[in-house]
Design a protein around this nucleic acid. Structure first.
Lengths: 301, 301
DNA sequence: CGCAATATTATGCAGTTTTGTCATAAGTCT
DNA sequence: AGACTTATGACAAAACTGCATAATATTGCG
């Protein structure tokens, strides 16, 4: 296997033809064709089927392309790191962190603003992903650490430190009748339009079961995939949603209130990082900033 | 930059000498030396200082080695994933296949038993449906491929490969007077109780017409909807049925015999799959197992 | 409908480059 | 001196690369 071959795989999937790939990579078409054949021979599997003179990728090619992407990314990072080392005697240090998608809007900017006051020279790369994706990124050492919901087992070689907890709360518009209640049960939600997230994620499945057991049919108005959008929908009066209080606390500026949802369910959130490789000073400081920001967002109300 | 060069970097740091590295990597010492020089040239920095004839790593080398480690790990992951895909040991892969309802009893279990011997890790989902339903499932990409009777046009974006043929046969109990005949005509069936399937399916309508043209009135004792149940009824002496020899062959273990039905009519059966999306290796292997099973069920009698 | 024009991928060929080994030089330590 | 190291020149083998071109499919035009 060969770096150039992986590049061909990536570019070929992006462009769809050997000619465009050749142009993009500064090679001849025949070179690309050959490189691809070599890769297929090395992996002893066909990555593309030749259909009517065209190359159409097999499912395996799509699967393996993700690995190729990772490898090329790491290669790029190594090159640019070498570049930094060579030119500036002290190239900028880079910290890579994974965060839940819901944090891109307010949490991450605030955290970084806090951080760069102390570490102005550090470059930061943020990955906004789901819990499972962040787990993978840590496992593969793509990121230095990540914030995620702790559920069941974490990947091998990963250490998770609990830094926050939450419980399910029901988020309703400020002036909604339900806002009068101290806490909200399943039965209170009968005939109330719902905004739910994460179809077929474990969290969501448990919620569906709760409704089913209570004999309440869900009126799902909207399905979405981020906590932020769910709260935003609620703020616009499109319905009510049920999310972890941890996330709900991030959107306190919206005209919504949240009330405990019974049956009560708790979640734990933690910082995940690979074991065996200690965090750099800059990375450690960023994780501290993250914890500070969590305190800030959760404590004061 | 080059994967082999990165391997040299890693091994060199681990072993400390080019000779040990050469031994570990199955190269000559001079080869290792040159590989290292290439890497240093590519990165345009020196990774080791030549101190009194020894190679001692620079701090940069240690920094960059982390990247190299990452890259090599990712490469290994890609290789082993490829290996898994090739051998079918890949965990989360699912193959979805559509089969005629008549196959659930014997055919499908035998086929799967054959298949999972070679691909123990693949999850399989079977859909037992009619020809038209299977067509739709393929069209909507719900299943990877399906086995069906070829009739007229197939849906758009679907490619059907013929894998079997059959002709209408009359299935009669072993000791039935009709079993004496070489072949059975419509007229032979006058006043014989019939078991028919698939009311108002094209195949059935053609059969009805045949009877009508010959002026023979059908004595329909039972209407059913699967070939298997029809044969089962015949075996219990409830009448005779007319089905495709392809299906009749699947029930040779019953105490029935089948004789060609004149006027002769032939059917074709095929594997349908969406064009534009090649089958995964696991799916392709399952289609091979299906073909093998067809050979087995049809050939030996 | 037929036929040329324009795509696509694949492949034989030749020149060049890279790779790998051997033999050997040169330095260092005990 | 002898047992280690690494580096290098020579040379053969292998691989790479681009060119020209074949084989095939699609498309446009009359």
């Amino acid at each position: 296997m060969n770096i150039k071959q992986l590049e061909v795989l990536r570019t070929l999937l992006a462009t769809g033809s050997t000619i465009a790939t050749a142009k993009a990579m500064g090679l001849s078409q025949s070179g690309v064709s050959r490189l691809l054949q070599q890769l297929e021979a090395d992996l002893s599997m066909s990555l593309f089927v030749r259909d009517k003179g065209r190359l159409v990728p097999t499912p395996e090619a799509l699967l393996l392309a993700r690995h190729a992407e990772n490898i090329l990314l790491a290669v790029d990072r190594m090159s640019s790191h070498a570049e930094d080392l060579r030119s500036g005697a002290a190239g900028p240090e880079i910290v890579r962190v994974g965060l839940p998608s819901s944090m891109w809007e307010h949490f991450a900017p605030a955290m970084l603003a806090d951080y760069i006051r102390d570490f102005p020279g550090v470059r930061i790369e943020t990955f906004f992903e789901t819990t499972t994706a962040i787990n993978k990124l840590v496992e593969q050492r793509v990121i230095d650490f990540g914030f995620l919901r702790m559920e069941g087992e974490s990947g091998s070689g990963i250490e998770v430190e609990r830094v926050a907890t939450g419980e399910n709360v029901c988020v309703v518009p400020k002036d909604h009748p339900l806002a009068e209640l101290e806490e909200i049960t399943v039965k209170n939600l009968r005939d109330v339009p719902l905004i739910l997230i994460g179809r077929q994620r474990p969290n969501r499945m448990a919620l569906d079961q709760t409704f089913q057991r209570a004999g309440v049919k869900q009126i799902v108005k909207i399905e979405t995939h981020t906590n932020s959008s769910a709260c935003s929908y609620v703020a616009h009066g499109l319905g009510v949603t049920i999310i972890s209080s941890f996330y709900a606390n991030l959107y306190r500026h919206l005209p919504v209130v949240h009330r405990p949802f019974v049956p009560r369910t708790t979640q734990e959130f933690g910082l995940a990082r690979a074991i065996g490789t200690p965090l750099s000073i800059a990375a450690h400081a960023l994780s501290d900033a993250l914890k500070r920001q969590i305190q800030l967002s959760q404590k004061c109300f």
